[in-house]
Design a protein around this nucleic acid. Structure first.
Length: 593
DNA sequence: CTGAATCTAAACATGC
DNA sequence: CGCATGTTTAGATTCA
């Protein structure tokens, strides 16, 4: 982002680099959009008309993003929530889309030489918008699927391979979207095949194999035809003549600008220079995370202002979750799982607690990424205590011997198939240390059970908008613990954005906190409420808040007068339509009976 | 700065 | 004696 004011073309390219999500533009990349958003909000609040396009065009193009970010007029999600009604948010988003187009046009008009304008300009705009749409869709897609990422920094396994970071289909789709090229395997496998449940399949997706061999523009499958009509109509016509990353005779890959005389040469260049390797994937991942966080922010802001009835549907203009057709393989996730950031935390215990706070409830998390954890040598972002509890509660009679707990760990997590002495010691330590684990003498010997009441007594993390949370996200992205390849990609692709993210500290942190309350602590809250009786997730907290007898719970409440309604609505809003098990999923079945 | 929570490591005890 | 199981302590880290 900081390069945005260095060179006009650089600014545009940087915009492409961050995939030009309208939300991204709102928050970071496009001062115009930012300015317009302020204008819009202010005028909406004061009853004035929407800003004219002239006003928009009057704002300087070359405003450094950092300056825009630091301006005291920065609109926080909280402010948006307070000011905007759902229709207003919708209108704002639609306006952003238009502004983006204007921005592109404006930038090109002011920066491009005269001979570069005209049809090429329009074509490039189209490509830009197409790219943005594709990326946004897929980011959302991956977000809904709870795309699991890798755990970096493990020296013995430098990359941990992308197949561990992202499920193969995600990578394929993402790569297809980015490059417009399908790999041979992608073409052959077609949609609907479950690639995520086969570890041997997973390993076949090495970077070299993923490297596209057949220049093949993506054909609109069901998903694309539904969600990207614009793309269909345009790409069909330009099937052989254009490419989202090819224009003006040069490669539009961020930072590349390699000259390619024709499409064939470009495809060759694309395959050779921009294959799906560690670096490019790291770039993608970073972009996904950044955009995801921004989208979550806006989603949150809009969600907070939506009535219950409205949350059942998705207002136009807001990022919609994919339909089931878009994600035929991975079960729908509950809300915006930030497993990517959590799983990117460094090895060891240093970041693990953070991970707790950024993850979905352990039950849904495990249920939806079960196969991943079984096959990938990735440390699950849960505490030993929560894992042990889950293992015990999963047992038919809610009790397990120590050895059975061991077996559950090794069965469920590839990570726990090594370093057995360490984690087994930790398991024993946790069993003994935590009062929530009760040892019961049985005829077969000793078994361990869970005392839910004691478990709930654990002090829940407070949910404040601490800037450190953002720092954690950044650290979660792996700085300092990534290998050189990743670090290079990260530094290259998003350092500026991440810096900008840091500047957002409070608003971002608060939003993330509200969204990513501790995984099992979320469940704690929910379970507590439900175990207390009649409260359904749809009830407002005011109705049951005082029934919660966990002593630390009020500390959670005081941060927001309606945390549960927020959670419920967020969950409702971000989860798939029809996915009604979200709030119940975490509940042990015995508590549902 | 403090305390809670967590993780890792290790020493030690007990029973088979 | 070796191993599994269980308890306890200590130190480090993170975070509110």
């Amino acid at each position: 982002g900081q390069e945005a004011n260095v060179h006009p073309d650089g600014a545009l390219q940087k915009c492409v680099y961050v995939w030009c999500s309208p939300l991204c533009c709102l928050c970071f990349s496009c001062p115009q959009a930012l300015q317009a958003a302020r204008q819009f909000i202010l005028q909406q609040a004061t009853g004035l008309n929407s800003p004219s396009s002239n006003e928009v065009k009057q704002s300087p193009v070359q405003v450094p993003v950092s300056m825009a970010m630091m301006t005291p007029q920065m609109i926080t999600p909280q402010q948006m929530q307070q000011i905007l009604s759902p229709p207003q948010l919708q209108a704002l988003l639609q306006q952003q889309q238009a502004l983006m187009l204007q921005q592109v046009t404006h930038t090109l008009t002011h920066t491009g030489s005269s001979q570069q304008l005209g049809n090429k300009q329009l074509a490039f705009q189209q490509q830009l918008i197409q790219m943005q749409q594709l990326q946004q869709q897929h980011i959302l897609n991956l977000q809904r699927q709870g795309l699991v990422s890798l755990q970096p920094g493990q020296g013995a396994v430098p990359i941990q391979s992308l197949q561990q970071a992202m499920c193969p289909t995600d990578l394929q789709q993402l790569w297809k979207d980015v490059t417009g090229v399908q790999s041979t395997e992608e073409v052959m496998k077609h949609e609907g095949l479950d690639l995520t449940t086969n570890s041997s399949n997973t390993t076949s997706y090495s970077a070299s194999k993923v490297s596209p061999q057949i220049p093949h523009h993506p054909l609109p499958n069901g998903q694309n035809s539904v969600h990207t009509p614009k793309r269909d109509s345009s790409t069909h016509e330009e099937h052989t003549a254009s490419h989202p990353l090819y224009g003006h005779g040069e490669c539009k890959w961020p930072g590349c600008e390699a000259l390619c005389e024709d499409m064939g040469q470009f495809i060759k260049h694309l395959n050779s220079e921009h294959a799906l390797d560690d670096r490019s994937t790291a770039q993608c991942r970073v972009q996904m995370q950044v955009v995801q966080q921004l989208e979550i922010q806006l989603n949150l802001a809009s969600t907070m202002s939506l009535s219950k009835r409205e949350t059942e549907g998705f207002p136009e203009g807001l990022p919609h979750p994919p339909t089931s057709a878009a994600t035929p393989i991975t079960p729908m996730r509950q809300g915006p799982s930030v497993i990517s950031s959590s799983s990117l935390h460094g090895v060891g215990h240093i970041r693990r607690r953070n991970s707790d706070k950024f993850c979905t409830p352990i039950a849904s998390e495990l249920a939806q990424n079960c196969e991943f954890y079984k096959n990938a040598d990735v440390r699950p972002p849960f505490t030993y205590a929560s894992l042990i509890r889950h293992a015990i509660l999963e047992a038919p009679d809610r009790q397990l011997t120590l050895n059975e707990i061991y077996n559950w760990f090794t069965r469920m997590f590839a990570y726990f198939r090594r370093n057995t002495a360490t984690w087994k010691n930790a398991v024993r330590h946790n069993l003994s240390l935590h009062k929530c684990f009760v040892r019961v003498e049985n005829v077969k010997g000793a078994v361990w059970t869970v005392d839910e009441v004691e478990y709930q007594k654990r002090r829940p993390p407070k949910m404040t908008g601490s800037p450190t949370l953002v720092k954690n996200i950044i650290s979660g992205l792996g700085f300092g613990s990534l290998n050189a390849s990743y670090q290079a990609a990260l530094a290259e692709s998003s350092l500026g954005l991440l810096n900008s993210t840091t500047l957002m500290n409070n608003s971002t942190g608060a939003s993330l906190n509200m969204l990513h309350i501790g995984h099992d602590d979320v469940s704690s809250t929910v379970e507590q409420v439900n175990s207390n009786g009649s409260c359904s997730p749809g009830l407002s907290p005011q109705q049951y808040g005082h029934q919660i007898h966990v002593k630390e719970e009020p500390a959670e409440m005081e941060e927001d007068s309606r945390p549960m309604s927020l959670m419920a609505s967020v969950t409702q809003n971000l989860s798939m339509p029809g996915d009604e098990r979200d709030m119940e999923e975490e509940l042990p079945t015995e508590e549902l009976e």
